[in-house]
Design a protein around this nucleic acid. Structure first.
Lengths: 233, 233
DNA sequence: TAGATTGTTAATCGATTAACAATC
DNA sequence: TAGATTGTTAATCGATTAACAATC
């Protein structure tokens, strides 16, 4: 393991940070990080200053082993005999997630969903900065949402050359997605938050895609309700 | 393995269906079912009548082994030397997911998000029937959304006794969630589609909960963008 | 110092992939 | 029949849990 002993002043709450060069972090771990962030934020808000992996594990309903294993993918943030300082750990997870580096973002498709996403999400605290809203419907163009005008999709090229967004949020129907995505990737978009059913990851392997498929999510709930119903009979 | 040879008429496209009594299906498999459903629906719409696990695997970007393994948790839906009949397979997955048994559903919280969910999701094709919309804000009560009136949360008890919903969609802020959930569980709600950050599953272990945490989803995208940026440097 | 709790290695468990006999 | 492809078992891989020495 390559280690980078950032500060070696032991009495000064030193944090050893592993350079994450060779070993990629598994998806299972990455998906758990936001939940740690959420629980630690709440503990901090509640005025708690330290916590052991055991206590955190009980609150979160996971094993203490898993918490320690997960955190040690990124560095030794705890202290033997003491546990974890919540301020330090929260700071580190925020940094690991990149929430301190806002990424310029545009949103395509201002129907019900795009509108709700725009209004409902606190982008700044999640590592993003929403710069522009686009829709191809000319009747919506010019309308203000969250202090931003809805722009015509015809102006995306111009907007991207000026503002250099690196992330796009896709709230358009599947059948409109392909040409828009081709365009956006050419314009330098590096990541998509994808609410459409268009299978982005297959076509552009280098682009980071996070899918939110409501339908899939609902169907798994349907499955679990059905199967529990069957077991009762 | 307990098998239920539903029809044993081999020449008649017989489908062997495994009773899923003892062996619980793993979450990994369940989460993949909606995607199979989605791809098969499209193939059907495109007029394709049969497909081999190999070809489907190439389209979906997974292994053929995984597809066969997944499907065989539920039964033998294919035919050696032929592959899978798309109509039959789609019918079976629809049944397995319980999409053919609509579950009465209510939605609590008609802010931007609740409104978008109501308008945007096709509940009937996902195994649900949306019966009632609720908000505690009296100024919204009576407003029509998708041909339904928004009702006062004060009338939830009465509504549930009359309509017996078994699923609730939670679109309310975390700090309002606890009493509402207590009430709903008492009223017989068996499943939640949870958009709030309230940790339902911990409190009511018998209730089925499917969480949609936008913030968590966005943060994992942030992580992946950050880490790819670091590797480039 | 003694007690507590981490970081880390080893053991276990589960999920994915590979292989192939069965069979359409 | 010969060819194709499934269903299923075995091998591999990865993730989780357990254990414990290190150390605050």
């Amino acid at each position: 393991m390559i280690e980078n002993t950032q500060k070696n002043n032991k009495s000064d709450n030193a944090v050893r940070i592993k350079k994450n060069t060779s070993s990629a972090i598994s998806d299972s771990v990455i998906k758990r990080l936001p939940r740690y962030h959420r629980f630690l934020s709440e503990l901090k808000k509640a005025g708690v200053t330290r916590i052991s992996s055991r206590e955190l594990s009980e609150r979160m309903g996971v094993t203490a082993s898993q918490i320690r294993q997960d955190l040690n993918c990124f560095g030794g943030f705890g202290q033997q005999g003491y546990g974890y300082n919540i301020d330090i750990l929260l700071f580190e997870i925020t940094r690991i997630l990149g929430l301190d580096k806002p990424k310029n973002t545009i949103l395509i498709g201002m129907g019900n969903l795009g509108r709700a996403i725009t209004m409902h999400i606190n982008f700044e605290t999640k590592g993003f900065r929403l710069l522009g809203l686009f829709d191809r419907k000319e009747s919506l163009v010019g309308q203000m949402v969250k202090n931003m005008p809805i722009r015509s999709t015809a102006t995306i090229d111009e907007f991207c050359r000026e503002n250099l967004p690196e992330v796009a949020i896709l709230c358009i129907p599947k059948d409109q997605a392909e040409p828009v995505c081709d365009q956006l990737v050419k314009l330098g978009i590096k990541g998509f938050w994808n609410f459409s059913h268009y299978d982005l990851a297959v076509k552009y392997p280098d682009v980071k895609v996070e899918n939110v498929h409501f339908g899939d999510s609902l169907m798994t709930l349907s499955y679990r309700l059905e199967s529990s119903r069957k077991q009762e009979i």
